[in-house]
Design a binder for these strands. Structure first.
Length: 318
DNA sequence: GGGCAATACTG
DNA sequence: CAGTAT
DNA sequence: GCCC
């Protein structure tokens, strides 16, 4: 448990198996497929011959596995904390509420556990995006506010909202934070109208007159007139970092990883703040990043620079 | 046997 | 710093 | 876990 790398391998094998045009009747049929090695092949063989996986039976009946994975679904609770809570004797979410070691964010995640798991219909996300744009332009005319994530990838429902914000001051591709005070004002205004309800993370890093730092807000919001909480993330980027920010927050994860690996192989470092030329770090294994940002005004510039065929947002559901 | 994306916040 | 999040 |  708590083995990210390994479970991720299972995760990667799922779509590979799902895309097979036939029903697997023997381990040999998955022999040369990517993401499926000896271990997974053995498991498949066992399922095909015995109809079940003995390893899995333990899991399903195991109280510990059940409780720990449940706890891990609470926002702010990861594998380590989930295990600690279990060791303390907790078994249900009600038990957790009595525990005073939880952080404010974890407590909030717990309180709205059921709310947060509800998916949001696309048309509602669309309305809330519009609402955010209205409020935003009222504070700062010319501000750009876009809902990224699965919404931008065209999904019919979304697990949360990823809002990416920037401002073009008319000087084209400014590298400065035009209005570093935007996010606090925006958040306050959204709380005033009862849209934002609880905070999870709120950090202001932007430095006035510079391009350093990205302002971030994670919290819970409600669709107007309703109490059901939804997860929402707000990120403010200076204009010259907006493309990489939007790209990263549109995803999906698989594409992000693929692009970042590709970037590294071509001597760059890619993250949500930009595309950099990797520096030759002296002895270290990991390449550092230079200050030189490769100019990427639009998402397509990132794809082009990396030599990766451009994908429209709806084509990024890898 | 080592890498698997990269980076920011909380406590 | 470890843990968690995106 | 998989892949080099």
């Amino acid at each position: 448990m708590g083995d990210d790398r390994r479970s991720f391998s299972y995760y990667k094998a799922i779509p590979v198996i799902e895309k097979l045009p036939f029903k697997i009747e023997s381990g040999d049929q998955v022999k040369n497929l990517p993401a499926i090695g000896k271990s997974l092949r053995d498991h498949i063989n066992e399922i095909v011959t015995t109809g079940k996986l003995s390893k899995l039976e333990h899991f399903e009946n195991d109280e510990k596995v059940r409780a720990v994975s449940l706890f891990g679904e609470v926002w702010g609770v990861g594998p380590a904390t989930a295990l600690k809570l279990y060791d303390k004797g907790h078994r249900t979410l009600d038990d957790l509420q009595k525990d005073d070691s939880l952080t404010y964010a974890q407590r909030t995640g717990l309180k709205f556990f059921d709310d947060i798991r509800q998916r949001i219909p696309r048309h509602e996300v669309s309305e809330m995006e519009k609402l955010l744009q209205e409020v935003g332009k009222d504070i700062l005319p010319g501000v750009t506010i876009v809902c990224g994530g699965s919404y931008r990838r065209g999904k019919s429902s979304c697990g949360d909202m990823d809002i990416v914000i920037t401002h073009d001051d008319g000087k084209r591709y400014t590298s400065k934070h035009v209005k570093p005070g935007f996010l606090p004002k925006f958040v306050q205004r959204l709380k005033d109208i009862n849209f934002l309800r609880e905070d999870l993370i709120f950090s202001i890093n932007s430095i006035e007159g510079t391009d350093s730092g990205v302002d971030t807000y994670f919290g819970l919001c409600t669709y107007p007139g309703r109490e059901l909480r939804h997860r929402i993330d707000l990120k403010v980027y200076p204009r010259n970092r907006y493309a990489s920010g939007l790209l990263a927050w549109t995803g999906n994860d698989v594409l992000n990883r693929r692009l970042r690996i590709l970037a590294e192989s071509k001597g760059y470092v890619l993250d949500d703040t930009g595309l950099y030329l990797a520096t030759q770090s002296s002895g270290g294994k990991r390449a550092g990043r230079s200050e030189a940002i490769v100019n990427c005004h639009e998402e397509k510039d990132v794809f082009d620079t990396l030599g990766f065929p451009y994908l429209e947002p709806h084509e990024r559901n890898l």
